[in-house]
């Protein structure tokens, strides 16, 4: 089964190493403006949310592209850009609901997450596992376990509180 990038923003420490390794890997430079992933921050509240392409099954970018430069790669479960066809009109940037399609003003072209061809560096370098590359089927399982863990903890506390009344 194809893998997906799973982001758990609660684990993110906001260090932005993912942005750095992404721009180094793809462009050979340190420049978050050219990274395919971005940590959106509410610095004064301590909230950090990594944002990247969701590789949507029914992708608006793909639908809006006037020259069909975007297509679905089923092997890696991703949306890919054919740069020979792309005319750089930025319609995909306009429609992406996650802001995950961006326009690289230096290279003058569209950039989006390509899952590093099956070995995404952002997940690889994320020490706290805020970004993980896992089987699509596992995405909800992991969430279920975390949620169940929290829930049972609360239930136990309630049970204890009741028993001491």
């Amino acid at each position: 089964m194809a893998k997906v990038l799973v982001i758990d923003y609660e684990k993110c420490t906001g260090c932005r190493l993912c942005e750095l390794v992404c721009s180094v890997k793809h462009e050979g430079v340190s420049n978050p403006a050219r990274s395919r992933i971005k940590i959106v921050k509410w610095e004064m509240e301590g909230r950090y949310v990594p944002m990247s392409c969701q590789q949507c099954e029914s992708a608006p970018c793909q639908a809006v592209c006037p020259v069909n430069a975007l297509s679905r790669d089923e092997t890696l479960n991703r949306v890919v850009v054919d740069y020979d066809t792309c005319i750089g009109c930025r319609m995909c940037v306009a429609v992406c609901p996650f802001g995950a399609m961006s326009f690289d003003v230096l290279a003058k072209r569209i950039i989006k997450c390509d899952l590093c061809d099956g070995a995404p560096l952002c997940a690889d370098f994320c020490e706290v596992d805020a970004i993980q590359y896992v089987d699509a089927s596992q995405q909800s399982t992991t969430k279920q376990v975390t949620a169940a863990d929290k829930l049972s903890e609360i239930m136990q506390k309630v049970a204890q509180a009741i028993s001491t009344v």
Partner: peptide
Amino acid sequence: TMDIKIEHPEEALEYN
């Protein structure tokens, strides 16, 4: 939003 060129990107990633 200016590039800082990494001189040996592959090795720099590996060493990091």
